[in-house]
Each structure stands twice: as structure tokens, then as C-alpha cells.
Design a protein around this nucleic acid. Structure first.
Lengths: 355, 355
DNA sequence: AGGAACATTGACAGCGCTACCAGACCAGAC
DNA sequence: GTCTGGTCTGGTAGCGCTGTCAATGTTCCT
């Protein structure tokens, strides 16, 4: 006959049910859908659970119910400040819900992403948050076949797998260039690192805006696949300057690069913004504090994470949002590093909501 | 009689076993301890699993084996750059192992930490990584009663629950002050934010070093419970300057504050380091890039995370480290912001390994 | 009053895997 | 040839929970 396993000593649902004088299944219902119980039993189960210090066994629950209460999150980087804000939003929104977050780092590799996706999906997550819209065909197929809600974050695009929340990096870059143009800048350089899909779209936006103004010149663009850093901003700017000594502005694909450019200008005694205007991207906290203060494109990263997780949890619980694609927009925050005229002569509409 | 639940369509271990012509239990063993099988069966099970695309059901495994393959990680903040480096190390080390990371954010609250700890422990994690050594008595008791390996990270102290990896914030702060002292600074201010236990210990180190040199003055210290930021660095420095106009150096409890101080100095046209020397803490990437470059105390955050996770996994798998407490040390990286004399006259031994 | 409609509750089996132990098999010792 | 000790394999039961559906009250109609 069977073995006597070491009884873990843990309180089981059956014990709670017994103390409360109800069947185990009723006790089970209490934890999943308390409204289904009569008020009397609800109170009895509640106090019994509290008295015994009952904690549900999630593994047993997952096994019996064929689903987990795990939300998988796939992000490309743990280093990038941008994602830590998004993550914070996701974790904040998940707190208090019964879902827990399972985080994985794709390291900007869509192959790695595909692998991780397969892993996640095998465990039947309650929902999935994935970064961006550039999955492999295989990943895309898996996502579409998945029987859980999915939110794509960081950007918006034409064919959402399910839900989507982000903003147009293309439009945001165009707005940044438009702002510099309005300030009178004509030789506007572009500095980009990593060149992941979203940075690429910022570059595309920059190129399109420059072409619209008949200002585009390939030699104004410096990019690298190297991960971004402040130091790299200085390095790339140095390259750019060597090619285009008469440049009057730089649009940086992110704020770290912008800070690096600012420091490099200081090192070279280039006046900012008089000689060169600087615009960054993301509006990290330090941008408002730099000397001169640095213009940037504000993106709502925390809100993006929080809303994504909230939407996802709502969808899991059957409350689908009326609007599956949410554009969080952006705003060009104009600061000293790019404002060349007096405030009273500055008419530019710099904020906008795309879509 | 029983219900026919929707067969999930998933490949189960039994199917693999059947195809391989072995019993389910043998197939099970293949995934947990392949060496226990004969070479022939091992190959048969392996190819059967691959052919069917078998993925184990972790919930069933957890339920049957009474343990999970989850490593719980408790950190106080998702915003702080410092933790993103540690986390990256943890995630990197966990990759390739069979353990997955469950992350929770205590928000610098030891009560929240206690709550999360209780939650984690109820799910029988394979191991736990907790931040710091200042748990509540209750948390401490739970940790000591836990039947899984535990690593405390970020600092080292006298009574490890189990394993411990970090460095002495106290000694690191003393080394920073010693460096400034060696540069001839005598009125050395302290700027600190958040004032979590580790920042507090940096302050303690600062105070002790200043007292040793008979230089301590309470009015040289400005702290706040507000979360850190670059902007806050400027604000706190402004306060400090109002009180101590003749200050000749500032030791900042972290690099964000140091950058804020640098910007504030620039704003006020205070020469760095000639009038005021600046030293930060952590040596984030941008410190080497600032103008002037900023001195900081380098800490091995990525390595700390990676080593912590590696030690933990080894311990889970029964390979206990010979040394349960690991001091990763620190190093004062001397840069322009605090070097007042010519390089040739600078003898200071600035790096050290405590313990 | 009779019955429908709803609200509550419970019985049963089983989710997919692994712990425990027994048994089969093999080599070497006596 | 028998026995011992080791290696490998399999049978059985059950981890703790929940889906299904039936059974039992309970209320509200006509």
C-alpha cells in the first residue's frame, strides 16, 4: 500500500472546512468567489482560515484548475532606466491582485524572446506582457494561439496581438525635430545607441522630419549597436562633430546619450544651446537638474507599466477594456538646452497625442 | 461518476514514457536525475521527450514533490539603479539553472518585507535572497526557521541567517572621508537621502571618520527621508551651503546626489574641486563621464547579485560554500572632482577589502 | 397551493507528477 | 549453485485543490 509522506504540517483547506463546519469545496469557493457563499458560511470560513493561519497551496490550485495566477513579463533589458520605471508600474499594479509577476530578460534578442515565450506559455500563464511589436513569426503565432490575454507595451502599431499600450516613437522623434526646427536649428544631428526597434523608429521619425524640411543629410546621423551609456553619448557626439563641425543641434535617442553630449560640450567649451542645442528622449529625472537644464521628450513609463498590468488583470478577470489599443502619447519638455529665443516669441505646440 | 475535464491536449510524462517504452517513473527520473538511468533508457526517454515536445508541468511537480523551483528575491526598490544592477546579476545567474526568480519589492519597509516573506515562505521556495540585515524580529525568526538556503545581500554583518554577501558601507564611507582628508579637505559635508539602513551606516562611517580626525560637526550633515534624486542632491547641497559656506568637500551617500551637487556647483559657479571637492557612492557609469569626472566608491553590484544567486543555487543543490559570508569590498575611484594635488604627490591607498 | 427559478451546498474524481518501497536483474564471493 | 550487495526499474498511492453536476433549500410567481 501507499507511503505515508511526511505531512508537511501545513494547514490544508480541508482543515479549514472542518473547523468552519462546511465541506472543503465550500471553503474553496470562499477564496475564489466569496459572493457565492451565504453570509453566515462566509464569516465562518473566514474566521476559521484566520484562526488556523491558512495559506492556499498555489501548486495544488494550479494543478487542479489548469491555470496559474502568474503574469509573464518579457522585457529586453534590466539595466535600462526606462524599463525599471515600467516594471515598477507593473509590480505596483500587480500588488493587491492575486497575480504574481514572472519576469524574464530577452536581452534585446527576439530569438531569446521566442525561447522564453515558449517556456512561459507551457506553464499556462494567466496573462502576458511583452515588449514591442517586433516578434519573430513563430513568437507571433504562439502569442496569437495563446489562450490568455496579452498586452504589448512600449509602442503602438497596426496589428495588436491582443491589447497594446505605448506611444509612437516615430511621432515623438518628429516632434523633437520640429521643436528644434522651430528654434531655428537647421543642422540637426542624430545620436543613437543600441538601435533596437524603438530607437530605430525614432531614427525613422527624425529622418522623415528632416526630409520634410529638406534638411536631411546622412552624415548627420551617428548610430551604434553598442548598449547606451553616458560615456557613449560623448563618444558618438565626438564622431559626429568631426564630420559636421557646423552642426547646430543634436537629437539624442535617449537621455543618457544627451547627458554624455552635454558633458562633451562642456569639455570642449561648446556653448549649449547657443552653439549646439540638445534634446534627449524619455525625460529621466536628471534632465531637469542638469546645467543647462536639458530638453527631452517625456514618456509615461510608469503609467505605461501600471496601466498595462491593470488592463491585463482586468482582461483576465473578464473585464475587457473598451479600447484595446492605448496611446499614452508624449510631450516635448522644452528646457534651456534647446530654447534659443525668448519665451514670448515661442508659439510651438509641443505636446500631442497621436492616434 | 467523475467528470471528463477538457484534456489540455498537452503532452504528459506518461505519453513520453509510453513512447520510450518505460514506466512513467523512469521517465520522471530522467528529468530529475538522468545519471540514475541506464544509458539506453536515458537515450530513449530523451528522444521521446524531444519528439513529443514534452514540457514538464511545474505545478504538478511542485505539488507532488512538496517543493518549488522558485527563488524568492526581496529588494527594497525597483527604481534605484543600484538594485537593477544587482537584479541583472541575479537573473543572469539563474538563467540556465532550473530555478526561476520571484521578485518582490519591499519599498524600504521592513513591515512590508515581513508580509512578503510570509507569503514567499508559504510557497516553499527553493531559496531566498533578502536585502540587508535589518529585518524585523519576526522576519528574522521566519528566516531562521525556513528550511531553504538564504542569502542576505548588499551588506555584511555579524549574524548571518545563513549566507551573506556584500561589503561594509561603514568602512566604505570611512575610506571616502579618508580620501578627502588626504586631499587636504577639512570641512567635509555629508549629504544623504532616503536614509535606509545602508545609507545610515554610510553616515555612521562618515561620522566616525570625522570624529577620528576631530573634524566632526553636526551642522555638516544634511539628510532627508525623501527618496534620492539628482534634483534632491542640489537641494540638499543648497541647504548645507547655507549653513556651512566655508565647506571644502561633500561626501554624497550616492551618485545621483553627487551629480546633483555637481550641477548645483555649476549653477552657483563654485569650482570643483578647487572650492568644493565631491565624492559619490556606487560609481555608476556616468561618474566617469561628468565634467569634472566624479570620484566615487565603486561597489560590485552586478557581481554581488550574480554571486548571491550562484551561491544560493549551489546551496540548494547541496554544494554549500566553504565560506558563508563573502565580503566583496569596495574601491575609492579617485577622479577629478576630489583630486586637489598633482598625481605624483598622491600616495593614498584607496582600495581595500574589509574583513 | 404548485411549480419554476434561483441561491447554496456537497460528492466525486482527478489534475500530472513524484515519494516510497519492492522487485528484477546482474556481477562477484563463497 | 547459492547468496550477497549493488544497480536499475516499476507499482501504488496521494500531494491539495477545483470542475462538473446533482441535490437541497428558498423565494417568488401564477
Amino acid at each position: 500500500m501507499g507511503r505515508k509522506r511526511t505531512k508537511s504540517g501545513k494547514i490544508r483547506l480541508a482543515e479549514v472546512a472542518e473547523l468552519a463546519g462546511v465541506s472543503p469545496i465550500t471553503a474553496s469557493r470562499f477564496f475564489r468567489n466569496p459572493e457565492a457563499l451565504s453570509v453566515a458560511k462566509r464569516a465562518r470560513v473566514e474566521s476559521a482560515a484566520k484562526e488556523l493561519g491558512y495559506v492556499p497551496n498555489l501548486a495544488a490550485r494550479a494543478l487542479a484548475s489548469q491555470r496559474t495566477e502568474v503574469i509573464g513579463v518579457l522585457i529586453p533589458s534590466l539595466t535600462n532606466n526606462v524599463f525599471s520605471d515600467v516594471l515598477r508600474g507593473i509590480y505596483d499594479a500587480s500588488e493587491g491582485s492575486r497575480y504574481s509577476i514572472q519576469l524574464s530578460n530577452t536581452r534585446y534578442s527576439i530569438l531569446q524572446e521566442e525561447k522564453l515565450l515558449r517556456l512561459f506559455l507551457a506553464q499556462k500563464p494567466a496573462g502576458l506582457i511583452v515588449t514591442g511589436i517586433d516578434q519573430t513569426a513563430e513568437s507571433r503565432a504562439m502569442l496569437e494561439a495563446a489562450d490568455c490575454p496579452i498586452v504589448q507595451i512600449m509602442e503602438i502599431g497596426p496589428n495588436p496581438v491582443d491589447m497594446m499600450i505605448g506611444f509612437s516613437h516615430y511621432d515623438a522623434a518628429r516632434a523633437a525635430v520640429a521643436h528644434l526646427y522651430a528654434q531655428g536649428c537647421r543642422k540637426i544631428g542624430f545620436v543613437g545607441a543600441r538601435m533596437d526597434p524603438r530607437v530605430q523608429r525614432r531614427l525613422d521619425g527624425y529622418v522623415s522630419a528632416m526630409k520634410d524640411a529638406a534638411l536631411f543629410d546622412q552624415r548627420l546621423v551617428v548610430t551604434t549597436a553598442t548598449p547606451t551609456s553616458v560615456t557613449l553619448g560623448g563618444t558618438l557626439f565626438t564622431d559626429l562633430l568631426a564630420r559636421q563641425p557646423d552642426m547646430d543641434a543634436v537629437f539624442c535617442a535617449n537621455d543618457d546619450l544627451a547627458l554624455g553630449v552635454l558633458f562633451e560640450c562642456r569639455r570642449r567649451e561648446i556653448a549649449v544651446p547657443a552653439q549646439i542645442a540638445i534634446v534627449g528622449f524619455n525625460d529621466l529625472e536628471f534632465m531637469a537638474s542638469a546645467v543647462p537644464t536639458l530638453t527631452s521628450v517625456r514618456t509615461n513609463r510608469y503609467e505605461m507599466g501600471k496601466t498595462a498590468a491593470t488592463m491585463l488583470i482586468d482582461a483576465i478577470d473578464g473585464r475587457r477594456p473598451e479600447q484595446p489599443v492605448l496611446d499614452l502619447g508624449f510631450k516635448v519638455i522644452e528646457r534651456q538646452s534647446s530654447v534659443l529665443r525668448r519665451p514670448d516669441s515661442q508659439p510651438a505646440v509641443s505636446g500631442m497625442l497621436a492616434g
